[in-house]
């Protein structure tokens, strides 16, 4: 049995027919072809699938697609204003070499943006490290991710995002 679901993803109205068990991340990847959001585990711990749902940071492998009915979803594909103008967090990741294989990166960037906002653009290293508890990276050793987030916080504030 399939269920109709409709939501807004990156500002665009989308809809589809899903199984009741279809996860939000499956809907994004398999139904919409938006493969920027990744799946790195099956226990909701790696954080590669983090997206923003109605202003809240969500692991999209932990939410059913039908639960996002009517929601506004933002994914990694929806962050940059244009190819030339990245979100300050994306820019900070590039400037600080905060990614290597790129697989954890979408979730890492989404979590980082949420973290900066929740802390009102004011972060220190210990807070960033603690807050990254839900995002695993095997390549970078976190060193440059932490640097990038600390650099992005003031940049986001001055950019008003």
């Amino acid at each position: 049995m399939t269920i109709s679901v409709a939501m807004t993803v990156n500002g665009k109205a989308v809809s589809g027919k899903v199984e009741a068990r279809t996860l939000l991340v499956q809907f994004l990847r398999e139904h919409l072809g938006m493969t920027g959001t990744h799946v790195g585990c099956d226990t909701s711990q790696c954080g590669a699938c983090v997206v923003d749902v109605d202003g809240k940071s969500v692991k999209s492998c932990t939410m059913l697609a039908v639960q996002a009915e009517g929601a506004k979803v933002i994914t990694i594909e929806g962050l940059a204003e244009s190819a030339d103008k990245l979100h300050p967090m994306q820019e900070a990741f590039r400037e600080n070499h905060a990614l290597q294989c790129g697989f954890c990166t979408p979730g890492m960037v989404m979590s980082a943006i949420d973290m900066v906002k929740r802390h009102n653009y004011q972060l220190d290293e210990a807070t960033v490290r603690r807050e990254l508890e839900g995002n695993l990276c095997r390549c970078t050793g976190y060193h440059n991710i932490v640097k990038a987030i600390l650099a992005a916080a003031p940049a986001m504030k001055s950019a008003g995002v």
Binding site: R29, G33, M34, T35, G36, T37, H38, V39, T75, I76, E77, L79, A80, A83, L86, Q90, F93, R94, E95, H97, L99, G102, F103, T105, P106, V109
Partner: peptide, 21 residues
């Protein structure tokens, strides 16, 4: 030098095996 590969990885346009249509 900043990495050439970053643009696609940062914008969700990398292409891993599971992403193939």
């Amino acid at each position: 030098v900043k990495r050439k590969e970053d643009q696609r990885f940062l914008t969700g346009t990398g292409r891993y095996v599971d992403d193939l249509p």
